[in-house]
Amino acid sequence: MDGEPPVKIGKQRVLMIDILITAYPWIKAFHLMAVIAWMAGLFYLPRLYVYHTERASVGSEFSETLKVMEAKLYRLIMNPSMIMTWVLGLILVGIPGVVDWGSGWFYVKFACVLGMTWFHHWLGQRRKDFVADQNSVTGRHYRLMNEVPTVLMLVIVIMVIVKPI
């Protein structure tokens, strides 16, 4: 447009973009590894809750063992992998050309990732219930909820790979 000054991009910003573009395959690889670890936890923790609900009486040695397993899975594997998934995903989104902001696939994927994050925190709340010996959710409910990450994963993979919208 005549009369408008050209947009200036600082040398540091150009350098940062160049670094991100060069590092893209590495960022994407570590993002995928974090997603796999997070998904493993999202699949396994509800299964532990089924066992905890159906096979461990309150105060039993098995119940206490499950509490330790659940805590370690949630705090040492699931939380760090969720955080890394988000951090690396946001870095990927910031790399020019990675996302076509005019297509719908990214928005559907993002909504599913928000759903996955909600599910993660829901599992964390249920873990606190078990720690307090206050679980009120049935094993059947945990089995049904275990389908949530599966459905979200299917939609996410289709959106990222096929990009139907």
Rank of each mutant, 00 (worst) to 15 (best):
V58H: 10
V58P: 00
V58Y: 06
G59H: 09
G59P: 11
G59L: 09
G59M: 09
E61K: 13
F62G: 08
F62I: 10
F62P: 10
F62R: 12
F62H: 14
S63L: 05
S63P: 01
E64V: 01
E64H: 06
L66E: 04
L66D: 03
L66I: 04
K67Q: 09
V68M: 08
E70W: 06
E70L: 10
E70I: 07
A71L: 12
A71W: 15
A71F: 14
A71E: 15
A71S: 14
L73W: 13
Y74H: 14
Y74V: 00
Y74M: 04
R75H: 15
L76S: 15
L76C: 15
L76T: 13
I77F: 12
I77Q: 13
M78W: 08
M78F: 12
M78A: 13
M78P: 13
M78V: 12
M78Q: 15
N79M: 14
N79E: 11
N79V: 08
N79T: 00
N79G: 06
N79I: 00
P80H: 05
S81E: 06
S81A: 10
S81N: 06
S81W: 07
S81P: 03
S81Q: 09
M82Q: 05
M82T: 11
I83D: 11
M84N: 11
M84E: 09
M84P: 15
T85C: 13
T85E: 02
T85A: 14
W86C: 09
W86M: 10
W86N: 13
V87S: 05
V87K: 01
V87M: 04
V87T: 05
L88Y: 11
L88P: 08
G89V: 01
I91F: 06
I91A: 14
L92E: 11
L92S: 00
V93K: 08
V93S: 02
V93P: 03
G94I: 12
I95L: 01
P96E: 05
P96S: 03
G97L: 04
G97F: 08
G97A: 02
G97T: 07
G97E: 07
V98K: 11
V98T: 13
V98S: 12
V98G: 10
D100G: 04
D100A: 10
W101Q: 07
W101R: 07
G102R: 11
G102L: 04
G102W: 10
G102N: 09
G102A: 08
G102Q: 12
S103I: 14
S103K: 13
G104E: 09
G104F: 06
G104Y: 12
G104Q: 15
G104V: 08
G104K: 15
W105C: 03
W105T: 02
W105G: 02
W105Q: 12
W105M: 14
W105N: 05
F106V: 08
F106R: 13
F106C: 01
F106L: 02
Y107M: 02
Y107E: 00
V108L: 11
V108H: 02
V108M: 04
V108F: 05
V108G: 00
K109L: 01
K109Q: 03
K109P: 00
K109G: 00
F110S: 05
F110M: 10
F110L: 06
F110C: 01
A111T: 01
C112M: 15
C112N: 01
C112D: 03
C112Y: 02
C112Q: 01
